[in-house]
């Protein structure tokens, strides 16, 4: 079987096994890609790993992408490799709700509340309560029970995107300081953050967990005041945000 046929065969097998849970499947730049429903985020790798001919037993990578808007905001991307077949594949799981969808839902709710209040005033009675739309933080089942390597990868994704992995043994920050605020790789996080976290970190083994030393929030003078301003810069907006602005 040639490599291309093999890739097509793999996609066909996955589609036959999981049916309509596979939202999309195809070959992208020579790599088989499946877009799946979050409900089979653990089942599919488990099935692929245990499958007697495919045996996707080599863990490559877990990461995520933030698309900000749209029906689903995030995509959790998993790369796996089958050592027996020398084949790599990508598995994408869309989760979360886009920022524009949330904004629209909130605006609709505000409109509905205002309308109800207006009507109630006309009829001189208590306005009926309309429940506000609720959007939970993105979460997805953890792959740690299938692959050992998923442990730190998922910690990294949580660290940078705030995607919770349910069932993860130790979901703590891995690259950022423990007391860091916000999730830096989200698209609405600025490149120049204000918060600077502190080291050293706390430990879990010894119960003598060190209290995180809070870094002094020094607010340096904005360079705009120090530098001589040229005439055409007079009307320019200050580059830095004002004190008290919370970016997170």
């Amino acid at each position: 079987m040639s490599t291309d046929e093999k890739k097509q065969q793999l996609l066909d097998d996955i589609k036959a096994q999981f049916g309509d849970k596979i939202l999309n499947a195809g070959i992208d730049y020579g790599m088989p890609v499946v877009v799946i429903d979050p409900s089979i985020h653990v089942e599919l790798p488990k099935w692929l790993k245990a499958h007697e001919s495919w045996t996707f037993n080599h863990f490559i990578d877990i990461t995520a992408v933030d698309y900000l808007n749209g029906e689903h905001r995030y995509e959790v991307v998993v790369h796996l490799r089958s050592h027996a077949n020398n084949l790599k594949m990508r598995m994408k799981t869309p989760i979360g709700v886009g920022k524009d969808v949330i904004a629209k839902a909130k605006a609709d709710h505000a409109d509905a509340v205002a309308k109800a209040k207006e009507e109630a005033e006309k009829e001189e009675k208590e306005p009926e309560e309309i429940p506000a739309p609720e959007f939970s933080e993105p979460s997805i089942p953890s792959l740690t029970e299938v692959f050992l390597g998923a442990n730190w990868s998922e910690r990294e994704v949580w660290d940078f995107y705030g995607i919770t992995f349910e069932g993860h043994p130790r979901l703590t920050r891995v690259l950022n300081p423990d007391d860091f605020v916000g999730y830096p790789l989200r698209k609405d996080f600025p490149v120049k953050g204000q918060h600077r976290g502190s080291f050293p970190r706390g430990t879990v083994i010894s119960n003598k967990r060190r209290e995180p030393v809070m870094a002094k929030r020094t607010k340096p003078e904005p360079a705009d005041h120090i530098l001589p301003r040229t005439p055409w810069e007079q009307e320019r907006e200050p580059v830095r945000k004002k004190e008290g602005d919370n970016h997170a």
Binding site: H58, D61, H83, L148
Partner: peptide, 8 residues
Amino acid sequence: AERALDYG
């Protein structure tokens, strides 16, 4: 070998 593959 198995654990090494599992760890990535």
